[in-house]
Computed example of a mutant assay.
Amino acid sequence: MQTRHSSILQSPSYSIGAALVAVTLWSMAPLMAELARATAPLQLTALTLLAGALATLPLSRRVPMARCALSWTLGVWLGIPLLIVGAVSSYFIGMRLAPAAEAALITYTWPVLFVLLSQWSRWGRLHWASVAGALIAFSGAAILLLPQAFNGGFGGVAWGYGLALLAACCWALYSWLGQAAPIALTPLLPRLLLIACAFTCLGSVWLEGGVALPRGEALVAGIALGLGPYGIAMVAWDKALRFGQASLVGSLAYGVPILAALLLVLAGMSVLDWRLPTAALLVVVGCLKAGR
């Protein structure tokens, strides 16, 4: 029996609308993280992942894992939660050590890394357009980094930029595993987020001395991060890719760094100078070039 989807789900406007919901929520993540700055980063990560698991709970269903090799079973239940922890916690810590807009911009170079990884794993080589796109995107990041290097070093900011790049690598690997896995990962997402939350709680107890529930604005921001960027946005993105044209839907994600930086500037949490919009434009152009 062939499964049929409704005409609403098959319409291009549905997939584009779902993608725009995801892009908007992802763009709000740096602003929400800044509002929860008073919370220890691993505690914030644990709260975010727990809220994300609850938000994606309607997606949960059984997946026949018996068909998977042992390496893929370990990769799904251990590797992916660790990548989620690495991506989210590195992102939050990086924005504590470096300016939030710049750190977010570096993190959102992950589509370029994903394209390079996918091409190398599939064909064993890289296309020149992808390499050129990567160089363009990372030249945008260099615009943010070089002035500080010429002025006598980075200090703690270097660690923030490095962690932002680590978050980008984690998201690229997560996306590649989701593409290469022999099973669909979306029905497993609530459980994967809960496992990642458990890992983060252990790390918080070890490194931060315990897990405490944030209060006030930080609590609301942490829950909003899980429900939005790491909950509803992931569901919307899955629907957009499933029912829409992947190249068109994927291109919308390249607007995230620009919109995220704009929201931080409008909120007074980042200072606008020529470097930030120039770097954001180069990252978007580089992602588009690599995606072709």
Rank of each mutant, 00 (worst) to 15 (best):
A36Q: 02
M32A: 15
A149L: 09
S270Y: 01
Q10A: 15
Q10P: 06
L281Y: 10
T48W: 05
V63L: 11
V115I: 14
A180I: 04
L163F: 11
G291L: 05
S6W: 04
I84E: 05
Q10E: 15
L207C: 11
V211I: 14
V256C: 13
L252G: 11
I80S: 06
A19F: 00
L281W: 03
G152A: 07
L83P: 06
L207I: 13
Q119A: 12
S270P: 02
R37I: 08
L207F: 15
V265E: 13
V115F: 04
M1Q: 05
L207W: 14
L74I: 12
A279T: 04
V249N: 12
V85L: 15
E208V: 04
A164F: 07
A46I: 01
V256M: 12
E102D: 11
R125E: 09
A66E: 15
M28V: 15
T39M: 09
W72P: 00
R96F: 11
C169P: 01
S13R: 09
V235D: 10
A233Q: 02
V265S: 13
M32F: 15
G203Y: 14
A134Q: 06
L135H: 08
A69T: 13
S130E: 07
A279L: 08
L163A: 03
W274D: 09
P30L: 10
L173M: 08
Q43F: 06
L116N: 05
I106V: 13
G75S: 06
A253K: 01
L202I: 14
S89I: 02
P81I: 01
I223T: 06
T278P: 09
